[in-house]
Amino acid sequence: MHIKKMRLGWLRQAYIKDWLIQAGVIVGLLLVLTYLVSMLSSNLQAKNIVSGFDFLTKPASFGIGEGVYDFEAGSPYWQAFAAGLANTLRVALLAIVLSAVLGLALGFGRLSKNILLRGLCISYVEIFRNIPLLLQFLAWYFLLTTLLPAEAWQFLGHCYLSKSGLSFPIPIGLSLTWDFPSRNPFNIAGGARLTPEFLTVLFGLTLYTAAYLAENIRAGLESVPHGQVEAGAALGLTHQQILRHILFPQALRVIIPPATNQFSGLIKSSSLAITVGYPDLVSIANTSLILTGHAAECIFLIIITYLLLSLLLSVIMNWLNRKFQIVER
């Protein structure tokens, strides 16, 4: 029996040791979690703080100044969160598109033959990458609120630009009637409006992310061997054709993975909107947290939402990535 044990000894030992370690980690983690949860609940109980998600169906006491749809005070909290999420998505999606366009322009600019354009693009990237986004937000917001005219400036017929933002006509529903903005005693009413807060977040996210994207796009374009471009030219392809059929499809493979990171960073960074008064998800959650005292629940909602958003983004980008991947035959 002793000999038998010896023979299988080290295999079995390593095997058992592995499982013991893992079991230990799980038990340790469970202990820590139980401890934290019990501490949390006993602390909440001792302080008479009611926990649970019931508050989501109760009426919220605050209104939201802008959004895809009007959120009025008195509607339930979950609608406030939905409106906040809609605001986050609205600004993030627009910023993703705009930053991709600007990043593309800058990426090509960095490879220009003209040294001035190259220098301009490099300085843009170096300046915007090396300053905190929060500071850029604050600076843009200060500039917008200071420089926009107090007396609304009318242009293109029915568009207005003032300290309250940019107002322009929108069609009502699917009918052919339009909702035109008009002058009030002291500001602009009606129509659709992009507030300075929205514009700040949009500019800030776009300009910041574009600087990073430009670097990724440059690296992607440089990854395609120059010989291929020359070969394309030799075949008589135009500059546009070379771009579209040779350079871009190959560069995209290199660009998409880091660009996914940049876009996910952009969505996360939209949470900085709270510092310039744009009612995004985090800002709404923060207000709700203060008003209801349900700190754990509100933070949980933020975390879950961002988790889902990042999962969604990675699904989309993986699909794009697969589409452009080299198909091995």
């Binding site: 996360k268 949470s271 700190a295 754990a296 933070i299």
Partner: peptide, 15 residues
Amino acid sequence: RSIPLVSMLFLAAFI
């Protein structure tokens, strides 16, 4: 990696 730093700071401040 999928949550913003702000939510982590809220955790630190409130939880």
